[in-house]
Amino acid sequence: MGSRTSLASDVSMNSLLSEEERGIYQDPGLIRTVLSTTKTIAIVGLSPKPERPSYFVGTYLQYEGYRIIPVNPRADVILGEKSYPDLMTIPEPVDMVNVFRQPDECVEVAKQAVQIGAKTLWLQLRVVNFEAATIAQDAGLNVVMDRCVKIEHGRYSGSLHWVGMNTEIISARRGQRYF
């Protein structure tokens, strides 16, 4: 199933954003394009502790075939990958910057994401900072905000459905993978 299959259904639950903001930062088409074109993901705030949410997400993304690059000044290696103190020190191209930090730290992260030429800034569920979003948008980056990359991947790949969750996807077309 290619990424061209369009989806008409609104995905509105579990977000702090207004309908208009969701249209900008959580558009299903944008999210699907990001998920299908991204290869390398720098995870800012990835924890080395296996019980932490960021570790769950990192493990998930790795298993799904993305290359992850930990960004955590207090760790050397996480999930088998060398950890960097910040985005600027990563010596290779990064497609997506995925942020597990407090909202007030996001402006600095956004500036660095622009500087290293990332294509997407993705602020996790409940991480909302419009200034950071604008900085990235003005530089031409895709911006996703107040969404979890694992949940969204699960939503559009079909797996979130297997655990009884309401994906809000309604379609009579054949095929389950939407990116």
Binding site: S9, D10, G23, D27, I170
Partner: peptide, 27 residues
Amino acid sequence: MAGQKRRFGFETRMLHAGHIPDTVTGA
């Protein structure tokens, strides 16, 4: 990219929510 997304009605969801015809059989 941002487009008007549709909120489908109750009856539509009675029939369609939670099931997308699978890629292999199309059942």
